[in-house]
Amino acid sequence: MELDSIYTELISEHSRSTEHKHHLECPNMSLKGRNPSCGDEITLELQVEDGYIKDASFVGIGCAISQASTSIMIDLIKGESVAKARHLANLFLRMIKREELTEDEEEELDEAFALKNISNMPARVKCAVLSWHTLEEAFKEAEGIQ
């Protein structure tokens, strides 16, 4: 396993980035995601209006991979429709499960595609998917309430 294929510059930059790491002023969705085996814990906060994600942020503790993955995800979903965000989450989780993606789909994932190599590291897969799973769960929960 080559370390520089995992801890790329992009990932280590995102892991240190605090741009999205704060509370929102008025989130209308908030969900906690946990990796019980390693104690990673993030809380995802979303401000969703008329089916669009107006703002998004997170707080919590985790490894470089989970922090970077979360930061990249928020970059991608901010301003997008809920439907688009769910579509991206689906693509990301498929990529990590080593399912074949089309070139267009890979392009859609943008910076998140940089996490593809994590799919070769079974011990770290759960770090990469934590935020994306939390995002999916948040929308599922919201659907249940409506």
Binding site: C38, D40, G62, A64, I65, Q67, M121, R124, C127
Partner: peptide
């Protein structure tokens, strides 16, 4: 400033096996 799981992954790349996590002692 480094999460234990990153430490463990980086050490692993050098063949060094250590444990990272809560060690069943939350």
């Amino acid at each position: 400033d480094v999460h234990p799981h990153d430490v463990s992954t980086i050490m692993d790349a050098h063949g060094v096996a250590i444990r990272a996590g809560h060690h069943c002692a939350q």
